[in-house]
Computed example of a mutant assay.
Amino acid sequence: MNNIEDFREYCLSFKGVTEKFPFDETTLVFYVMNKMFCLVDIETFEFCNLKCDPDQAEELRAEHNGIKPGYHMSKKHWNSVYFNSDVSPKLLQELVVNSYDLVVKGLTKKDQTVLKEM
């Protein structure tokens, strides 16, 4: 995913995902059932913010220069993952899936059922 179009297409490929610009005209936010799982600046396309398990977040930051505490987010639950860094495309995809899955697990039973039926 070398550009915003490919990244956007990948994020939108998950079930129940929508996108909005709730903060400004450059910060694209991806939601699953109206809960954020990914944010990216479409102008700079330097990094994305992804939700992460707190223990795994610390491990990933220690192992990769391209993974930092979430920019303007809860540092405990969010990581900023830099695209042109030591983070492989495969790991980036896994981290996007992980963020999506974490948000889905946190949904109400009702929303999880609606999502499964989509």
Rank of each mutant, 00 (worst) to 15 (best):
D41G: 01
L39V: 07
K15N: 15
G16C: 08
K15E: 14
C52I: 03
K35A: 02
D55P: 00
C52E: 01
N34V: 01
C52S: 09
V17G: 02
V29Y: 10
C38A: 15
M36P: 10
E19R: 02
V17N: 06
E25M: 03
P54G: 03
F30Q: 09
D53C: 06
F23E: 15
L39F: 09
I42R: 15
Y31A: 09
L50A: 02
C38P: 05
K51A: 02
T44Y: 00
G16D: 06
E58Y: 00
D24E: 10
T44I: 05
F23Y: 15
N34Q: 15
K35I: 04
P22Y: 09
F23D: 06
P54K: 07
T27K: 09
T26Y: 11
L50I: 05
T27G: 01
N49P: 00
F30I: 11
N49E: 00
M33L: 14
P54F: 04
V40H: 06
N49W: 00
F23H: 10
E46I: 08
F37M: 10
K51W: 10
L50Y: 07
A57Y: 00
N34E: 14
I42P: 09
F47H: 15
D53L: 04
V32E: 08
I42H: 01
D53E: 11
E46C: 00
L28I: 13
Y31S: 05
A57V: 00
T44L: 03
P54R: 04
D41F: 00
K20L: 11
P22E: 13
P54D: 06
E19L: 09
Q56N: 05
F37G: 07
E43D: 10
K15D: 11
E19C: 13
F23P: 13
C48W: 03
L39E: 06
K15L: 10
V32L: 10
D53F: 01
N34D: 15
A57R: 01
L39K: 02
Q56A: 02
T18D: 12
N49G: 04
F23W: 15
M33Q: 15
K51S: 07
I42G: 09
N34Y: 06
M33I: 12
K35T: 08
L39S: 08
D53S: 06
F14M: 10
T27W: 13
T44C: 08
E58T: 10
E25Q: 12
Y31K: 14
E46G: 04
T26L: 03
K51F: 01
T18L: 07
C38V: 13
K51H: 08
E19G: 13
V32F: 06
K15I: 04
Q56E: 13
P22G: 11
N49T: 03
D24L: 01
T26G: 01
L39W: 03
D55M: 08
M36T: 13
Q56R: 06
